[in-house]
Nucleic acid binder design. Structure first.
Length: 664
RNA sequence: AGCGGGGUGGGGUAGCCAGGUUUAACCCGCUGGGCUCAUAACCCAGAGAUCGGUAGUUCAAAUCUACCCCCCGCUACCA
């Protein structure tokens, strides 16, 4: 049973989102399928939660419509990436909803759910309770006027919404009323001991997952609220819960089970899922990024235990570190990174799959750079692997009429080479079973290195004239190795593997596509097709590659003149600038936007400008963006600045114009 | 500040949990050579690292312990 983190389909995932989860899981699932094992790869779209609800409200559409659209888009993208799921479902699936409700009822009946009545501020205008960040007011300790519901920025003390003085709703600014509400809590602390034991004895868990999880338990588990007052989500099944919904994080992880149930339901088998979840011989492997560790090792495990149904706990939770983009964090708003839809417009899926798997962040964060991307693709895929295949196949095309030659008794060199290839195939298998995908892939590419060494040593182009039979032996072996590659590369680069199988004219019969068949030769006399290079070298320079990406983006998002003219761009004069205490990069600005009208802006440029430097400057600002709270401060205006790597420059008019001048 | 992760030849990584099996491995780059079947690809040889620092445990430390320095993430904002 292979599973990967459920993509949150608020937006298209980026490369970093899928390396450790969707893509890694696909490799391992494909491997086990090749081995002929019973394997099921399930996951799905995680579509509940506040960000989606908010986004939908903003667009004025029902959340379901938004997730329908995104789900469809993402399903299509994954297919293009060659991700082969057994079931890719979604948290809106009726099977999932029903399963989650039943599971929580069981947990409730087993006595692991308690309720607590609290008085929470409630905004009568927005018709919602105001937890954490939704409420602000005066800090009762230090008097700071924009303290948030969970913590005061000024003095750092933890707060509760009800303690704030003169509190107000962050969204509409109206004064909340105090209203009693009841929430249902999952009694997580009861599972601290069993969880600790489970994690300590689970030898498969990678370092990062074990250390992190044990630390969380050591610090003390706290009950987790199961219910939310949100509308978008799975209705809580508890008696008296009314229209409360289940918190996404507690619900989506159960999707692993419900997706299995759904898979078998579709096949008309109501019991089939049990062999994957209740049979003690079944193993579950989860592929996730490090941010997701506690939800799998702790929350999921505890929920499964709490049902008392005897579910298998995670056998392995393969959790990767993060992929960075040229030294920076992936960021949609700042356009840092490559998204999986864009990637495919630039290079074929297997280029990306290869690069990502070969640089999979297994022990520490790794950095994407175009230079490394180029290096991996050119040196490994094209020069080492691609060239080995191509030189072998073209030789057979030219000198053996595309038929695999008949060998005589193979010599010591041949035996040694084949042995070494076999060893690498074994290593790759072992490493894949340990989820060490990076190392496994290296072993596979090394097979073509061995092939190249063999050809160079034997010099069959000379043997052709001096000892044709020996040359025939060499190519019998060389094409054998090529066939090995066609099989073992399948989990990593399925498109290329299939293309290679076509070149080798290997029938599509699923029997031949078996890991155990990899090290068996193709029969002599077997006719192959005309060789064609599998890859093209990337010739473009690093800067050109980045430029291509940016150009592609620009051509994609054309803004109508009408939309553009909605922006109120002006020249603003900075009347006052001061740094924001406790923040590392924020400056609070008072800006004259014309006629002496002063507005406040909070800008993230303190690392690049001293406040004094800014005072008196005239610069480009956007006046009519929706105001926003930043670090507890109102920001009504956005200043414009150019960024070139580490250099940030605000935009100043090059002639004297007065504050408030329109920019068009 | 707290918590977590990391610092290994010029660049990128593996090894560390289970210390000796390593003269510290691999890829790129570099230097020299070979080959000419192959997409100027391939192969061989070589130079290049006191494994962030210090102290300790040990017959033996990149690996274990303590302290320190630097980087990154989250807490925690930068539209």
């Amino acid at each position: 049973m292979v599973a990967s983190a459920w993509p949150y389909i608020y937006r298209v995932p980026h490369l970093g989102n899928i390396v450790g989860s969707i893509l890694s899981a696909d490799v391992v699932a494909r491997y086990y399928r090749l081995k002929g094992e019973d394997v099921l790869y399930v996951t799905g779209s995680d579509e509940h939660g506040t960000p989606i609800e908010v986004e939908a409200v903003r667009r004025g559409i029902p959340p379901k419509q938004l997730t329908d659209e995104n789900h469809k888009l993402i399903v299509d993208l994954f297919e293009k990436w060659g991700i082969k799921f057994d079931n890719y479902t979604r948290t809106e699936s009726p099977t999932h909803v029903k399963f989650v409700q039943e599971a929580f009822l069981k947990i409730y009946e087993n006595g692991y759910v308690f309720t607590e009545e609290t008085t929470l501020p409630y905004c009568p205008k927005c018709k919602r309770y105001l937890p954490d960040r939704f409420i602000e007011g005066i800090c009762p300790f230090c008097g700071y006027k924009s303290a948030r519901g969970d913590q005061c920025e000024q003095c750092g003390r933890l707060l509760e919404p009800a303690k704030l003085i003169d509190s107000y709703c962050v969204i509409c600014k109206s004064t909340p009323i105090q209203k009693k509400t009841k929430h249902w809590y999952f009694d997580l602390p009861k599972f601290a001991e069993p969880l600790r034991e489970f994690i300590e004895t689970n030898k498969q868990l990678p370092d990062n997952a074990r250390k992190f999880s044990l630390n969380v338990i050591k610090e003390g588990l706290k009950p987790r609220a199961i219910t939310r007052d949100n509308k978008w989500g799975i209705p809580a099944p508890f008696p008296g819960a009314g229209d409360k919904t289940i918190y996404v994080w507690l619900e989506a992880v159960l999707g692993y089970v419900s997706a299995t149930v759904e898979y078998f339901e579709k096949k008309g088998d109501r019991e089939g899922w049990k062999q994957y979840w209740l049979d003690k011989d079944a193993k579950t492997i989860y592929f996730i990024g490090k941010d997701n560790i506690p939800f799998h090792t702790i929350i999921l495990s505890a929920l499964l235990l709490a049902t008392k149904e005897g579910y298998n706990l995670p056998w392995n939770v393969s959790s990767t570190e993060f992929l960075q983009f040229q030294g920076l964090k992936f960021s949609k708003s700042q356009r840092v990174g490559v998204w999986i839809d864009e990637a495919l417009q630039l290079f074929p899926a297997d280029y990306w799959r290869y690069y990502l798997l070969a640089s999979r962040p297994e022990t520490k964060d790794t950095n994407f750079s175009w230079e490394q991307f180029k290096e991996k693709i050119n040196a490994d895929l094209n020069d080492t692997f691609g060239n080995f295949v191509h030189r072998t196949l073209t030789f057979i095309n030219q000198h053996y009429n595309s038929e695999i030659p008949t060998p005589t008794k193979l010599g010591a060199d041949e035996k040694r080479i084949l042995k070494s290839v076999e060893k690498k195939v074994e290593n790759a298998a072992k490493l894949l079973e340990e989820c060490k995908i990076q190392a496994a892939l290296k072993n596979v590419i090394d097979i073509s290195r061995t092939g190249n060494q063999y050809l160079n040593k034997k010099e069959p182009w000379k043997l052709l004239k001096t000892n044709p039979q020996k040359a025939a032996n060499v190519f019998y072996v060389a094409v054998w190795i090529t066939k090995t590659l066609a099989v073992v590369l399948e989990p990593f680069t399925p498109f290329t593997a299939e293309e290679l199988r076509k070149l080798l004219n290997i029938p599509k019969d699923p029997q031949t596509l078996r890991w155990s068949e990899a090290t068996k030769p193709l029969p002599s006399g077997h006719k192959i097709n005309k060789a064609k290079p599998l890859f093209q070298k990337i010739e473009a320079k690093e800067e050109e590659l980045q430029k291509n990406l940016e150009q592609m983006r620009m051509s994609k998002t054309k803004v109508s003149f009408e939309d553009f003219s909605k922006l109120d761009l002006r020249v603003g004069r900075i009347v006052k600038a001061e740094s924001v205490p406790k923040s590392s990069n924020l400056v609070k600005l008072s800006i004259d936007i014309g006629g002496g009208e002063i507005r406040q802006a909070v800008a993230g440029i303190a690392k690049h400008y001293d406040p004094q430097q800014l005072e008196g400057k005239n610069l480009a600002v956007v006046v009519n963006l929706e105001p926003r709270q930043i670090f507890g401060l109102d920001s009504q205006v956005m200043i414009l600045a150019a960024q070139d790597g580490d250099v940030v420059s605000v935009l100043q008019p090059d002639r004297a114009v007065k504050a408030g001048s329109k920019i068009k």
